[in-house]
Design a protein around this nucleic acid. Structure first.
Lengths: 123, 123
DNA sequence: TATAAAATGATAATTATTATCAATTTATGG
DNA sequence: CCATAAATTGATAATAATTATCATTTTATA
């Protein structure tokens, strides 16, 4: 993977952002300072970094994919009202992959847990 | 919700099917015996039954939504090679909603766990 | 610094899904 | 049992999210 200015600013936007944005959201932010950037470049780089393990894709929250700069094991909660995404600590489901391997014998390469409901502000 | 012949055959197809099909897959099966059925009818009825709690939507497996006639709490594993979807017993993550509520205070209305990797046949 | 590989922006194409709407089917109150 | 309203259908248009294409530009390196 070669260096690219665009990838750098996409990563920085993701990292300094409090939310767990979609590609579209990052694109909207970047457009203000970098009006020439293309939405395809944003998608391309986010997926490229996700493949390389630099960031993570969060699927199953909404129809669109969200991205997360935090690659440590943790889970997500999406508020059904305000649609904000919150981190949930990994210790709510200890050894879940080992347990599942013990039960099934499947080679488990990853897992994802997503909660939904109402956050503190919305409930 | 009124009775409809189409909803009945869609539900029966889902119930008697070993897999966790997508709307498209159900549509392809149904077309053989019911060539006039519309794909929109399949989507409409699956989502309608999911809203009513009669079946469940499984999101986060692939780009398309899968449906499940088993509404009891359980999780899913998708094989990265053959794309088959397997059930995982709920007891791998006991009291996960209570634990998450205790940590966050959020009102939790549901959660989903999806694993991926290689199944017994593919690994 | 010439060259090959990688990345970009613009945009077309694709995929999954939902919306629209006239016609048909279903439920029910008289 | 039928008239009526509400629900549902099939056909298809529309939308939303994402990926593919491709000529041009940028980056790494011999």
């Amino acid at each position: 993977m070669n260096y690219s200015k665009q990838r750098e600013i996409i990563y920085n936007t993701l990292k300094t952002n409090v939310v767990h944005p979609t590609a579209e959201y990052i694109y909207e932010i970047l457009k203000k300072r970098h009006p020439n950037i293309s939405l395809a470049t944003v998608y391309r780089n986010l997926n490229q970094m996700a493949s390389a393990g630099i960031i993570k894709r969060i699927e199953g929250l909404e129809s669109s994919v969200h991205y997360d700069h935090n690659t440590h094991e943790h889970y997500h909660f999406i508020c059904d009202k305000c649609k904000k995404v919150f981190d949930i600590d990994a210790d709510i489901a200890p050894d879940i992959e080992d347990k599942t391997f013990a039960k099934t014998g499947f080679a488990i390469l990853g897992h994802e847990i997503t909660f939904h409901g109402f956050c503190a502000d919305c409930k």
